[in-house]
Write a protein that binds this DNA or RNA. Structure first.
Lengths: 144, 144
DNA sequence: GTGCGTGCAAAGGGTTTGCAATCAG
DNA sequence: CTGATTGCAAACCCTTTGCACGCAC
């Protein structure tokens, strides 16, 4: 079969891993997923988390948000969309998250459905990553 | 002294490493810098490249563009500015590079000097990273 | 001479993989 | 039974670090 996942058997661990990635907007890394599951699934191995997340990525069930502080971060929300990344704490926030300032969200809205094709390039504005400092880190730096 | 680099001695290797990072718009990784120098400086060690690049980053002489395909990439152009990253070949292109399509540059221009401070967040549009496919990778995929 | 700078090799941290045991169909 | 799935530990890759030597001042 050419369809991805055609010759695949069911696995409770696989289901659980996907469920955890999808259960949060925190854009977790593999270790976070593992930590969240290991109390419920005692025999779980970190390698299994990696293997399954890679499967999900290949078939498009999860997306990578990139490497932050040395760790690859994933997203269970797979339609392309912009992200904000805090350069201090590494937090990853969706473009439409309520905690982001309204002016920022407006800029994001303009980009979120645009895919540009010009001069031979394909530029997907929906995969834009903005950088800065989240409110908590700004507060922490001001207080300190 | 509190000034960075106050108690530092001169080093030809250090000078050479900084010169290489500044000599290119390719946003190189440490290995690339090392490869480019090892023929001219036979005794050079990759560790020295890493150590000095980290020094430069601390004092703001070079900037990190992030991790692409597992390798950290650096930029000798340190004023904050947007980048385009090709998701296929990992190429990193400055927002104002001539090979990028004009429409893209226009979007970039709107963002490049804006630093937003609202709702406690600090969002630096000048550090935006756009994603897509460069012209060569688009061509390669079409031909294949 | 003092102590920063460097090469080398080992150690680190995140991720992948080989292998034998296990589980789903 | 057959082959996919997994745990474990080793392997990998990029990056950092400990140590002794060498170079700048």
């Amino acid at each position: 079969m050419s369809r991805p996942g055609a010759d695949r058997k069911h696995s409770k661990k696989r289901d659980a891993i996907l469920a955890v990635v999808r259960s949060t907007v925190s854009h977790p890394g593999a270790q976070w997923v593992y930590d969240r599951l290991k109390s419920d699934i005692p025999g779980l191995s970190l390698a299994t988390v990696y293997r399954n997340i890679n499967l999900f990525r290949q078939e498009g069930a999860v997306a990578s948000v990139g490497v932050i502080d040395g760790e690859e971060r994933f997203d269970g929300r797979v339609e392309p969309h912009p992200h904000f990344v805090c350069g201090c704490c590494g937090r990853v926030i969706d473009y439409d998250a309520p905690e982001l300032p309204p002016q920022f969200s407006k800029v994001m809205e303009k980009l979120k459905d645009v895919t540009d094709t010009q001069g031979g390039f394909i530029i997907d504005y929906r995969k834009t990553v903005f950088n800065g400092l989240c409110a908590e880190c700004v507060k922490a730096k001001t207080t300190a």
